[in-house]
Simulated assay, not measured.
Amino acid sequence: MNKPNTAPFAEWHAPAHWRAVDFISDLHLQAGDPATFDAWQQLLQAQHSQRADALFILGDLFEVWVGDDVLPSTAAPGSRTEADDHRFWRTCAAVLRTYSQHTPVFFMHGNRDFLFGTAALSACGMQGLPDPTVLVFQAQRWLLSHGDALCIDDTDYMRFRAMVRQPDWQRDFLAKPLSEREAIARSLRQQSQAHKAGTTGDSTRWSDVDEPTARDWLQRSDCNTLIHGHTHRPAQHDLGDGLQRIVLSDWDLNAQPQRAEVLRLDAQGPHRRLLAPASRHPCRRPV
């Protein structure tokens, strides 16, 4: 099998005064899911005493992103309509921009929002991170990734991923009218939903992270722990030799039971913070 990453690993060194950082991924925010948006917004509006020193978003914050021209600061006159989706993206950008004024926000592309560009990052007040990135925090090294590049057994997806991450493909796609891009995105979502229905909705039958490749990444990056999302299977996996991977929760406030977790990393190590359904105030539990 081809290893998905052979380049040097990017690094981000946290400031010495940071005491806690939060990680989230796979919220898949969309206009048709106000419950998940409300939980996310209330998390970002938590009291100062509950906030971490930084927020790391490890991909798929949005259900889909077809180009930065859905935001008013980047749209040419007459190039967009006032659709519900567009108003929703602008609301999300405003929430992030307000939060980033007091807390640094770092964003890593996922498989749904890989077209999130520099203009959108600026509009949201976020800083982009390459996938993967080593976070150096409190004298330890933590490897961060969305996780989809490690699902190498899903050969169809890996071919698709290699194609859409090419600059030429992205330039050609973004040159299409916004309405055409949105139609293509709807078609791709329908295909994805049909694929999931074909596996009877059982996420355990979907491709998972290849653990030998995860071990290789950890060894080459000189890290002991990989933190990632994408698979929607929150867990902690022992990879042997002191190596592990921690899988972030996806968010779905319409599911039963509801899913919405934040992974906090502090002096005590990583621990999950559940958003209580009634109050949305995080409750700590072990990883």
Rank of each mutant, 00 (worst) to 15 (best):
V70K: 13
G240H: 10
S203R: 10
A35Y: 00
H230Y: 15
G229V: 09
G229W: 15
A183W: 03
Y157N: 04
R273V: 02
P167W: 12
R97E: 03
P104W: 09
S203N: 11
T98G: 05
R97S: 14
V64M: 11
S49T: 09
Q244H: 11
V247W: 15
D53T: 03
G240Y: 14
P286H: 09
D113C: 10
D208K: 02
Q256S: 12
A139F: 10
S192T: 14
Q190P: 01
D60P: 03
A76K: 14
L274E: 00
S192N: 10
L27G: 01
F137S: 04
Q268S: 12
C151E: 08
E63D: 15
S25Y: 15
M163Y: 08
F114L: 02
D222V: 05
W65H: 09
V105R: 11
C124I: 07
D60C: 08
R285E: 08
R186C: 07
D26L: 10
R285H: 02
R220K: 08
W206N: 07
P167G: 06
L253P: 00
L150V: 06
R189T: 05
K196Y: 15
P234R: 13
D210K: 11
F88T: 03
R90L: 03
S100N: 05
E63Q: 15
E63L: 13
C223M: 09
T155D: 09
S203H: 11
R285G: 00
I227G: 02
A14P: 11
W18Q: 07
D69N: 13
A120E: 05
D131H: 02
T133W: 10
A194H: 14
R87V: 06
S25L: 13
G67F: 14
Q127G: 04
F56Y: 11
F37V: 01
A93L: 14
P34I: 06
R285M: 04
R285V: 13
D68N: 13
S49Q: 06
Y99A: 15
L115M: 10
A35W: 01
D113G: 05
S49Y: 00
A75S: 15
V134C: 12
M108S: 06
K176R: 15
A260M: 08
L44A: 01
L115V: 01
L71E: 08
R215S: 02
L253A: 13
N224F: 00
R112L: 09
M1P: 04
D154T: 01
A83T: 12
R259P: 00
V287L: 13
F160N: 02
L143Q: 03
K196H: 14
R272Q: 07
V287A: 06
S279P: 13
M163T: 07
A235H: 11
F9N: 05
R189G: 03
A54W: 01
D131V: 01
L43V: 00
G32L: 04
D216G: 03
D69F: 12
P15I: 10
T6H: 09
A54V: 02
S179K: 08
L129R: 03
F137E: 05
V136A: 12
D241M: 10
S100R: 12
P177H: 15
P234N: 15
P104A: 07
S221W: 00
R97Q: 13
D156M: 10
